[in-house]
């Protein structure tokens, strides 16, 4: 899933300073699962904003609303009937959702309440961990199912570097060394000979480095009127 963090309240308060009526828009997908911008977090933020305004003698009207998704316009368009009752939208979706909401309402101020961080998994309740960077050319079959791009601090293809110590990364002692994990897994799979193969220079053009990416499935597109 896409994982994000709620921005600090202070930052959000600064953004909404000029507004008295805001639409606080949650998203029911990944950002709900990682407990950053779902219905509950929308409620919490609304409450925080109201408390803070009241404490400082100000007023704020907040409509809480959580969409099924903010990455599909059909859902975003559901706010059309009431969006104009509000001066600004504060979106609690991931960066994609925030932008798409802004795209659907070009005349409306759309503010981010989430710092989108990574594509990851739930390690345990309340703990999420990065697994993928969407580089566009997966090599997990070569690395025992563990991604050096996302999980090595240096994205080394032929690691580990000299900083691997007791299975941990030198950058953060709480982070496992990706290459230790890869070596362990290759051993378990009886494929340690794979380690001896040099992984060649990567083609980064399939990643963000090739520019913003678009995916098209021509067969699924709705035919144009003939």
């Amino acid at each position: 899933m896409i994982v994000g963090n709620r921005k600090p309240l202070e930052e959000i308060l600064e953004m909404v300073k000029p507004y008295k009526k805001i639409l606080l828009l949650g998203c029911n997908e990944c950002i709900t699962v990682c407990a950053a911008g779902g219905e509950r977090e929308v409620g919490v933020l609304a409450s925080e904003l109201k408390l803070s305004r009241a404490k400082n003698g100000g007023e704020i009207e907040i409509k809480e609303h959580t969409l099924e998704r903010q990455c599909d316009f059909e859902y975003i368009d559901q706010i059309k009937p009431f969006v104009d009752d509000y001066e600004a939208i504060v979106s609690m979706a991931c960066g994609a959702g925030i932008q798409y909401t802004a795209e659907r309402f070009p005349g409306k101020v759309v503010l981010p309440a989430i710092n989108t961080t990574f594509l990851g998994v739930t390690l345990e309740q309340g703990v999420w961990s990065e697994r993928c960077q969407g580089c566009g050319e997966c090599i997990l079959h070569l690395t025992g199912g563990i991604c050096p791009v996302a999980r090595c601090a240096k994205s080394l293809f032929n690691g580990p570097c000299g900083g691997s110590s007791n299975g941990k990364c030198e950058v953060n002692p709480d982070t496992p060394c990706a290459w230790q994990l890869i070596v362990d897994r290759l051993k378990e799979l009886g494929q340690l000979e794979n380690y001896e193969k040099i992984i060649e220079v990567k083609n980064w053009s399939t990643s963000r480095d090739g520019g913003p990416r678009t995916r098209v499935r021509e067969d699924l597109r709705i035919p144009k009127d003939s």
């Binding site: 240096k154 080394l156 293809f157 032929n158 900083g163 950058v171």
Partner: peptide, 20 residues
């Protein structure tokens, strides 16, 4: 890694690694 230096907020490159 840049986190050890005087510019921990820098972007690293690592387009290729030492073996490459």
């Amino acid at each position: 890694h840049q986190s050890f230096g005087d510019n921990p907020k820098a972007k690293n490159v690592y387009d290729i690694d030492s073996i490459q």
